[in-house]
Computed example of a mutant assay.
Amino acid sequence: MPEYIHIPHCFLKDGIFYFQRRVPTELIRHYTSSKISYSLRTRSARVAAARAIRAASQLDEYWYHLRSQDADLPGKHMRRLGVADPRQRASDGGSVNIDCISLSEAVVTYLRLKGSGKGITFRRAAERACGYVIDTCGDKPLSSYTKADANAFRDALIARGMAGSSITRVFGTVRSIINFAANEEGIELTNPFGKVYYDRYAGVSDRQPIPVEAIRAVQAECYRLDDDMRWLVALVADTGMRLAEAAGLLCEDIVHDNEGNYIARITPHPWRRLKTAGSMREVPLVGSARWAAERLMAVHGGSGFAFPRYNKTDTTNANAASAGLNKWLKAYVPAGATMHSFRHSMRDRLRAVECPADIVDQIGGWQTNGIGHGYGKGYAAQITIKWMEKAIFL
């Protein structure tokens, strides 16, 4: 399969990569064409991917602001979208009215102060969530939003077909942005987007763990096919790593100690950040994960990306990994199970050997409750290896 197929918003013509993206229907009036298309001036897939991702990100940000400007508000022509610093608003010679900060300005404040060092996903989630609010209720001053607006917003999300878990995430993002910006600007308000009722379980299906027998069948196929995609499956199957954590590994992250043990060091990288601070850890590689590590070392010589297929741009493409591997996995696991189900299975497998909960949390990078668990360096590798071997070879 040609590698350019994996590049978003790109097509190839006469060996040159072109960027192409359709303009959203509600914004077409701002353009002379319904499609944006131009040459990326490169024959390199890697360079084209980086340029296309950067262009798409710039367009998403610009379209977010266009949607904000299109909100039907009195005095819209007098607004200065994106000015989130009170000193800037006072520079016109007038007094500062703290109630005038709008939701779009709150997003700018939030991203400016909290977005530093965060990935593009963090920015997109903030802009998308508040973009939904602006589409439904308009871009109002924060103190002008009402409970009726919040209820209308909830109804709009339900009408979009969002599951309860997705609505919870969107509401959580909106609440965080409003609370943070209000605190920064010195605005006292009761956030109307809190305590909004909806069915949090609507459309949500529980992720079921994969039975051990099915895991064994999957591993047998991985050994038989013996390619990079199956190495990734094997690595996740007997570690419970998040797929993005495994796909973004360097060969240098896989270490081999004097006692013959393999350990994967899960650390943040510029191309793949971690979900939480507690996700940084050392994971013992036993069973199929050890086999995968040995195959990676043999093929790559201990340096570079462990899975170059999913690291062709400046960001690990975990979505591509998920789509491809889940499609293959369907034939071997119960209906509804995915690559993430291995993570649920690992927790159950460790429970089955009566592994202490805080050791389970350390292995999986899960949050452990209690202040005391934040002290010290955690359990030594010999201890986590012992419990992983009990769970894997049960």
Score class of each variant (00 low, 15 high):
Glu282Trp: 12
Val283His: 01
Val283Asn: 04
Val283Asp: 01
Val283Phe: 01
Val283Pro: 05
Pro284Gly: 04
Leu285Asn: 11
Val286Gln: 10
Val286Ser: 15
Val286His: 08
Gly287Tyr: 07
Gly287Glu: 13
Gly287Leu: 09
Gly287Cys: 10
Ser288Phe: 03
Ala289Asp: 07
Arg290Phe: 10
Arg290Val: 12
Arg290Glu: 14
Arg290Cys: 13
Trp291Met: 10
Trp291Arg: 11
Ala292Gly: 11
Ala292Phe: 03
Ala293Thr: 11
Ala293Ser: 14
Ala293Arg: 09
Ala293Val: 11
Ala293Pro: 14
Ala293Glu: 06
Glu294Lys: 07
Glu294Ala: 05
Arg295Asp: 03
Arg295Thr: 05
Arg295Ile: 02
Leu296Lys: 15
Leu296Trp: 03
Met297Tyr: 13
Met297Glu: 10
Met297Ile: 14
Ala298Tyr: 03
Val299Glu: 00
Val299Lys: 05
His300Cys: 09
His300Gln: 11
His300Thr: 09
Gly301Tyr: 01
Gly301Val: 04
Gly302Glu: 05
Gly302Cys: 09
Gly302Pro: 13
Ser303Gln: 07
Ser303Tyr: 02
Ser303Phe: 02
Gly304Phe: 08
Phe305Asp: 05
Phe305Gln: 07
Phe305Glu: 04
Phe305Lys: 08
Ala306Ser: 12
Ala306Asp: 03
Ala306Ile: 00
Ala306Lys: 04
Ala306Val: 06
Ala306Met: 00
Ala306Tyr: 00
Phe307Arg: 13
Pro308Trp: 00
Pro308Leu: 00
Pro308Lys: 03
Pro308Arg: 02
Pro308Ala: 01
Pro308Asn: 03
Arg309Tyr: 10
Arg309Asn: 13
Arg309Lys: 15
Arg309Cys: 11
Tyr310Gln: 04
Tyr310Glu: 00
Tyr310Asn: 02
Tyr310Gly: 05
Tyr310Ile: 08
Asn311Cys: 02
Asn311Trp: 00
Asn311His: 02
Asn311Ser: 02
Asn311Gln: 00
Lys312Phe: 08
Lys312Leu: 15
Lys312Thr: 12
Lys312Ala: 10
Lys312Tyr: 07
Thr313Cys: 05
Thr313Ile: 08
Thr313Trp: 05
Thr313Met: 06
Thr313Arg: 08
Thr313Gly: 06
Asp314Glu: 10
Asp314Val: 12
Asp314Ile: 13
Thr315Val: 14
Thr315Lys: 09
Thr316Tyr: 02
Thr316Asn: 03
Asn317Ser: 02
Asn317Asp: 01
Asn317Ala: 03
Asn317Pro: 02
Ala318Asp: 13
Ala318Tyr: 13
Asn319Leu: 07
Asn319Trp: 05
Ala320Gly: 13
Ala320Gln: 12
Ala320His: 09
Ala320Tyr: 04
Ala320Lys: 11
